[in-house]
Amino acid sequence: MSTPIISVRDVHKSYGRGQNRFDALRGVSFDISEGESIAIVGKSGSGKSTLMHILALLDVPGSGTVALEGNDTAQLRGSRLNRTRNKTFGFVFQQFFLTGSNTVLENVVLPMKIAGIGGAERRRRGMAALEQLELADKAKNKAANLSGGQKQRTVIARALVNNPRIIFADEPTGNLDTATGAVVEDILFGLNREHGITLIVVTHDEDLAARCDRRILIRDGRIVEDSRAEVAA
């Protein structure tokens, strides 16, 4: 079996100290293979967001290790850590996090701008990503003037533009109506199937979780259930 793209071993994370100490994660271990789609499910306060932040290297575990392709991420520091995040991950958020006063294209090319890619190349790849999400005609519109579905597609274009290997989606359909949400889900799973991008979805929407290959249920900082789709069905 090939090396898992992400390997989590006995990760603990706690906030505060003494009386106020709150254990968000209490010993979490699992592997994620390249090309998988995984739903991390749990109630709010269960620790699923903390887990996502640790997987995305935005936060460091209190103890335990997170390995990216077999390499311990605790070794990554400063600019190497930044470069890894920039090249490996794409982010899709429930609240979109678009800069409303900038154009759709400017929002989409932001990760490439951070990566230091030249203007012409940024434009070309930005337009290609928008094309892929059928938003090319909106490239020059201000992001604030888009509908919810268009905003989320813009966010997906932004997540895609650097050809990431993993896309983190935090409640990607949380702010969308059912029909638009379904379209966004189709796009995400399409990317997973056709481009082999590993998809990690954090959600409490059971229908969305059911569409993933694998479902990890978190409760009180522990994994209480890790089921494959065929087993769950």
């Binding site: 995305a56 935005l58 995040r85 996090f97 990760p111 951070i114």
Partner: peptide, 8 residues
């Protein structure tokens, strides 16, 4: 967001 995307 910029920091999450790897801006130092």
């Amino acid at each position: 967001l910029m920091k999450a995307m790897g801006m130092g």
